[in-house]
Each structure stands twice: as C-alpha cells, then as structure tokens.
Amino acid sequence: MSHDLLVAGEARPMDPETARTRRSLGRVRGKNRSAWVVYAVRALLVVAWLASWEIAARTIIDPFFYSKPSAIWDKLVVWFEDGTSHGSIWSNMAVTLEEAVLGFLIGTLAGVVLGVILGRSRFLADVLAPFIKGANAIPRIVLASLFVIWFGLGMSSKVATAFVLVFFAVFFNAFQGAREVDKVLVDNARILGASRWDLMRTIVLPSATSWILASMHVAFGFALIGAVVGEVVGADKGMGLLINQAQGNFDAAGIYAGMVVVTVLALVAEWLITRLENRLTAWRPPSGSQAAGI
C-alpha cells in the first residue's frame, strides 16, 4: 500500500525498556569507575589528538592545507577579540543561530502538524504520499541555491533551507508516531467521551511525542546545516559566510575555526533539546539519550 511507503528513514524513539537498560548500564559504570575518570580519559584523548596534529603539522604534513591547532586557536582569538571581516563574531553567530532556530521552529511546527494529520487520516495520506515522497527525493542542498534566487542574500533564504531540512525529518517521525497510537487508548478515550480534538490533544500527540522528540535531536543539527550551507551559497553575514571567505583565501585555519564555532552551537542546542525532552517525557522511565550521555 502506498500509505506504508511514506515511512522512510525516520529516527526511532528508544523504547523505555532499552532506555532503562542503558541507564542502568550508565549507572553501573558511574559507580565502578567514578565519572571523573571518564572525563579525564576523554580530555586525554583530545589532548593526544591535538598534540599529534600539531606535531605532524610542524614536521611532516603541510599546514597550508591541513592547518594546525595553534593556528586555529589564533584565528579564534582574533575573531573573538578583534572581530571578523564582517563585524564581530558574536553578530555572525547570532545571525546563523537565528536562521537555524527560525527554520527549526517553523519546520518542526509544520512537520508535527502535517505529520499528525496525515498519520490520522488514511485518505489524505494516500492522496499526498507520492507528492511528499517526490519532494523528499529532491536533493535539498540544491534548493539552497534556488532559495537565494527567490529570497535574496538575506536571512529568509537560509531560514527556508533550514526549514526544508527540518520539515522532512520531523514530518516522517510525527507521521509514524501518529499512526502507531495504541488503538485501545483511542477506543478508551472515545468511550470516555473524547471529541476529535480531545483525541488529538490527549492521545495522539502525547503518543507521538517520543517519536517527535527523537527526530528533534537530528532536526536541530539539520537546521544548523541548512543555515550554514545557505550562507556558504550566498549571504551577507553568518558563520557560513566566514567559512566561505576563508575558503576563498585558502585559509584552512579559518575554515576549521568556523567549524569549531558551529559545533559548539550545535552541542549547546542539543543539550537544551535533551532538557526539553526530559521535561516532556517525565511520565516515563528516564529517556535513554541523556542517560547514555551521547
């Protein structure tokens, strides 16, 4: 059935059982070897990696192509102390973040609404399935170029790129989540007198929440990618523009420095989403992604 084919590449939510096992594994590990050992080994790995890179860049490999940690650090210092060629680094980060967050919010909202509606309406899903699959098959990065033509070099073209990336990630999960609602829960609510809207609000959405939240982790990453790629393609401000210019100047350290900044942004966002997830799923045994610390 075409209906079934809509489900593609969704991020599965972890079932509570796995989550619990993972959590208890984490706890056992935390007890046996105290947490700081884990952190110490992590720090050691990073130091070792950076040191070997630095040494290699000073001896065997060509730092012009591969750069080196000290050069990247210097670049970051310059950016944060003296600013970039396009204003202060903070303003560039703010622009990229604003684009990503806007794209993320609009994309998530649209994905959830459409996913849930289609998940509950077999007819609509059957009608729209080929169009959605078609749209999903378009290489979305290419759309970034199109959006620059449509919306110009400003913020809206990047928001649009982030939006399309986020939308499909969230949509497929919300769709699947809405379809997998336990039938007996729906029947029970109907017996208790739930209206259509009550069903959506109190049964379908909460059931789909773990699916939707699972996709949001991936989705914010996508939103950042969308914003940065959009800026690389054409922009007047933002981290992507800085990276693009560094590339134009054969400034490998600048590219790396841009990557570092974007990565930090992504990690902070991921942390925020995990906190949100824990709040929204307080009703079940703690979620796994946080427990596993990944």
Partner: peptide, 14 residues
C-alpha cells in the same frame, strides 16, 4: 457507557 477493556487502557503519560 462505561467500558473496561481486556488490555490496559490507562494513559501512560497521565
């Protein structure tokens, strides 16, 4: 009508 189903039907998130 009141109906208690054969399988569990309480809402896990409430």
């Amino acid at each position: 009508i009141g109906y208690m189903f054969q399988t569990d039907a309480v809402l896990p998130w409430k």
